[in-house]
Structure formats: C-alpha cells, structure tokens
Design a protein around this nucleic acid. Structure first.
Lengths: 159, 159
DNA sequence: TATTGTTATACTCTATAACTATA
DNA sequence: TATAGTTATAGAGTATAACAATA
C-alpha cells in the first residue's frame, strides 16, 4: 500500500478502483496540461517549447529533429519557419555538406528555453510533492524503469 | 530503491540522474505515443478516440463536452461535425430545452469505442508489466494519489 | 541511388469573434 | 441577461506526394 497519509484521500473522492491504464491516461493529461499552460505563459506553443528544449542539447539537422519528434521532414520545415519567423531558432549551413542545414537557438530562443525548462520542471516537481520523500524516490525510480524498458523496445523519441 | 531486478537497467543505458520532471515528460510521451498508435489502428484521431470514450459514459451536451475537453464550444462543433460525418456519433434534440442537443454514440461508434478502450488499456497495462506485482500496485496507488490531489486543486478535465 | 531539405495541398484541431435561438 | 450552439475566419501542426540539390 502506498504510505496513505491523511489528506491523500480527498474529501469524498476516494480513488476507487482506478486501474493502471486509467491512471496513466489521467496522469498524462495532467502533465500535458501543465506543459501547455507553462508554454502559453512563455508565449510558446507546446511543440515550439519542445523544439527549444531539444535544441538546448546542441545544434541539430532537420532530418534529425524530424526523427526525434516522430514526424515527417516536411512538418519540420513548417515548424522551423514559424520558429525562425519568431526569432527563436535559426538555420545555418553546414560546412561539410551543402544539402544540410544546422538548426541552432538564437539568444532569445536560448533564454526562452531555459526559462521554460526551469518553470515546467518546477511545476512537474510539485506534482509529486505530496508524496513522502521515500515514495517520491520510489516513483521516480519506477518511472525511469518503465522508460528505460520502452527505450529499448523501439518506438520512442530518440533525442 | 525500486526492486531493481535484472534486465531493468538496459544494456549500457543506466537511468542515470533522471529527475521526476524528466521522467514525467518522457512517460507522458510514451503514453501519448501508445494512445495515438492505437487510435490510428482503429482509424481514429486521438481526439476522436477520446470523444468516443467519454461518450461511453452516456449522452453529453456540447457545452458539457467542451468543458470536459478544456476547449471552446466552437471547437466541439467541428469535432462533432467530423465525428457525425464519419458515423461515429450523432446529435439529437433534448425534450426539455430547445436550444440544447444531446450527443450520443452510434452503434459503430460504440463498437469502435469499446474496441479502442480495450486495446489501449491492454497496451498501457503492458507498460508496467515489468514491475513486480508489489511495485505495480505501489505505482498504481501513487499515480491515483497524484491525480486525486490535482483533481481538487482545479485545472483538470472534469469528466 | 540515397539523403537532405523544400514546396504544394489537404486535413484535423484550436481560438476568437459575431451571431441565432431559447431560457 | 444568460445559456446552448453555430458560423466565419485564422493559425498551428501534421501527412502525402512531388521536387531540387547534393552525396
């Protein structure tokens, strides 16, 4: 049983019979809601926010980003056009390969990315703040375990 | 520590230092990916699949659905137009109120909803199948706890 | 031939604003 | 006036298909 301290079961709303699948769907909705809300607060769409966060890891090619987002190359073109028009990221040419472009953050983009990332991390952290430190670490570990398993069995974003 | 059985730490990829926030984002991506993939398998968009699942709970009004999805009424009109055109759901008039419409599933819609729900539940269940029964129940409980807390502190779908 | 990226087109989903009809 | 729903318009995000340029 989950260290069920007082206050866990909210007034009259006992978490009766919620199976893992339902829990995962609702948790996903919660996380998405937070991600979207923080994005809006920073005047970004969720997809733009995600793009900026990925680019914090360094320059990326268009095809690489498409793979990472799990979308077609053509979708990236539109995404980058909008990001570039808004001054968040930019294309530059790659020395060795005249076909390729390199996508990098502008200063404004980097600033936005850092601010967004900090805020969304903080808000997501709050989500588990009610758990005991012990449960919180348990939860973190199990989440990491689930992800690690699925990373191997294909199909996830690789970025 | 999470009952760290063999095979949890995947070849060379130790889940080093993944914080709760990152874990939640990646888990969300995983769940979304599954939801989307299963939707496609049933020739539905994720939003349509969600609409059908909500309607499994009984007839709903347009405004009610909009509130439940966290979108404007106008968005629901488009959503329902497409769902109706595809024969998944239908509008019918409400006896007591000549402004209102009632949205219900068609037979095809109900069938699709049930099939989708079963499949997505199964796939999401697999996500935690690597955990020990004990850990799995712990995870379920903590997830339910997180959701219950946030249900009270506003901002989530109420449906 | 394979890869990188773009253009053109179409569809879904969403928001905002203005509107009708009913309560 | 408030509520239920629609229409019109605009924009983001995505897919497919066809294309250009380079490797």
């Amino acid at each position: 049983m989950v260290a069920a301290g007082p206050g866990c079961v909210t007034d009259g709303v006992h978490d009766a019979e919620m199976d893992v699948a339902t829990g995962l769907v609702q948790l996903t909705g919660l996380v998405q809601g937070i991600y979207t809300r923080v994005s809006e607060r920073h005047d970004l769409t969720p997809v733009q926010a995600r793009l900026l966060c990925v680019l914090l890891g360094g320059p990326r090619g268009m095809a690489e980003l498409a793979r990472c987002f799990g979308v077609e190359k053509a979708a990236l073109t539109g995404l980058m056009n909008r990001a570039e028009r808004r001054g968040l990221a930019q294309r530059s040419s790659v020395p060795g390969d005249r076909r390729a472009v390199q996508v990098t953050l502008t200063d404004a983009g980097r600033q936005a990315a850092i601010a967004f990332h900090a805020e969304v991390s903080a808000e997501l952290g709050h989500l588990t703040s009610q758990l005991t430190p012990h449960d919180r670490e348990l939860f973190r570990g199990m989440t990491a375990e689930i992800i690690a398993r699925c990373r191997t069995s294909s199909l996830s974003d690789t970025c």
